[in-house]
């Protein structure tokens, strides 16, 4: 009797898991299916789950067509790559040094500075953006990839500092002290001992910084008009006011989602650890 009850419980558990997985994955699957269905099939009743004549025309169109929206989309992919990579590098460099300082060094008003960093993370972006728009337009920095890199970095750095600090704190200070006794200076100890030991933390933070800048929308929407448009702005433009080309929208969505999703699938464990350990142990 107990055995049967146990079995039933397990079956129930697996059914629940399958339902969750379905809810999580189905919208993606349907978007992918739509992107390779012909326009006729998209509107057909009953719905075709497996497209009768799968077509990759839209994917081809996105890489070859001269349509202005499509050109903007291609450009958006390249811009987003440049911006996100730039932000990742800037944030990791600044974040590592500052995070280390907050973990190890003594300097005046350390706690106040740290709390201040945390506070700036709390300011809703809309509060900052109006001012940024006018400042950038005065400095002639609108619609530029470099401005986006600088701006995103200034928002993501506090987060990286905070995370790197909690990572460095877990590394025993004895290690660097030993290195310094052996003749390393602080910078040397940082590069030879601490950074190699914190590779997992650096990877996780780098990925998060990359994803955050890849997905940013509000700033890009307001600050870019043509040549620096990022992928999020370009995708949002696929849906017009009057007419929506659902097929093309689905294709753009799939391409835009591929990179974050791939990164997540490959580095998933790092990210889960980074997200949960900070919250659980913090």
């Amino acid at each position: 009797m107990r055995r049967i009850k146990f079995r039933l419980k397990r079956i129930f558990l697996y059914i629940a898991i399958i339902i969750i997985m379905f809810c999580v994955i189905a919208p993606f699957l349907w978007t992918i299916i739509s992107s390779i269905s012909t326009n006729k099939e998209l509107l057909s009743v009953p719905v075709h789950f497996i497209p009768e004549n799968p077509t990759f025309e839209r994917y081809k169109a996105i890489f070859t067509s001269d349509d202005t929206k499509v050109v903007a989309f291609k450009r958006g992919i390249i811009n987003s790559f440049i911006v996100s990579s730039g932000v990742t590098i800037v944030c990791l460099v600044i974040g590592t040094f500052a995070g280390y300082a907050f973990a190890r060094l003594k300097f005046p008003r350390k706690n106040m500075t740290l709390q201040f960093f945390l506070f700036t993370n709390m300011i809703p972006p809309i509060v900052i953006i109006i001012a940024i728009y006018f400042i950038f337009s005065k400095l002639d920095m609108l619609d530029s990839v470099i401005s986006l890199i600088l701006l995103y970095s200034s928002f993501i750095t506090p987060f990286v500092i905070w995370m790197m600090r909690s990572y460095f704190v877990t590394i025993p200070a004895d290690l660097e002290e030993a290195a310094m006794i052996d003749g390393c200076n602080r910078i040397g100890a940082l590069f030879r001992i601490i950074i190699p030991l914190s590779t997992p933390g650096l990877v996780a933070n780098g990925i998060l910084a990359f994803l955050m800048s890849w997905e940013e929308f509000l700033f890009a929407l307001i600050l870019t008009t043509s040549k620096a448009k990022t992928i999020t702005v370009a995708i949002a433009e696929f849906t017009g006011k009057q007419y929506v080309d659902y097929g093309l929208m689905a294709t753009g969505g799939v391409i835009g989602a591929i990179i974050p999703v791939l990164i997540t699938l490959i580095f998933g464990r790092y990210i889960i650890k980074g997200l949960t350990s900070g919250a659980v142990k913090g």
Binding site: I20, V24, I25, F28, L211, W214, E215, F217, I231, T232, I235, A236, G253, G256, A257, P260, V261, I263, T264, L265, G268, I271, I272
Partner: peptide
């Protein structure tokens, strides 16, 4: 489970 949160909000 982390796929939805990794997907761009716009998308």
């Amino acid at each position: 489970l982390i796929i939805p949160m990794a997907t761009t909000p716009v998308i």
